[in-house]
Amino acid sequence: MPIDKFTTLESTYVPLPVENVDTDQIIPARFLKATSREGFGENLFRDWRYTSDGKENPDFVLNKSEYSGEILVGGKNFGSGSSREHAAWAIHDYGFKVVVSSFFADIFQNNALNNGVLPVMVSPEFLAKIFDAVEKNKEQKIVVDLEKQSISLNGESESFAINPYKKNCLLNGFDDIDFLLARKEKIEAFEANN
């Protein structure tokens, strides 16, 4: 799947100040029965977003109209648990292009990158500032610049790390399969020697 190009994004954001948001919360297993990649956004955070009788839970942030934007900000250790790529699909399908946290689980991070969703890891202090700022002003924006690897809030910036290969993929919309397919001969040579 070719991925969306990502260069910079300035957007308001949706705060979810909960630690250890696991992929079972992002998309519960019972919604993994599809055989395509589309439509998972509908059930993003299903059991937090809706009550057991299917009504919107007014206390959940996605149901609060004052919060919106293409950036989701989560607490520490975001995306732990299952390897389901459906979690990244659901976040992408809902319309988020960036997820900010002070710590990400490995597999989720890979899955997000493979779907053009940029995980931005910030310091715990910067994360706290992001959560505070949006409580004061719901229209608060964050600027994410992939080329410069920087995230800014009210003129204060922090740099974030990203693998240079993955950065290049996102900037250009390349995916890993094209890269691997171009190496078929090397792979066959490896097989012959082992």
């Binding site: 390897s83 890979n110 890993d176 399969i177 397919l181 792979i187």
Partner: peptide, 20 residues
Amino acid sequence: FGIGTSEVEMVLATQCILQP
């Protein structure tokens, strides 16, 4: 180790994945 579906596709296509 566990992988995502994009990586499943990579393995099916090339028997390889890209991993740090």
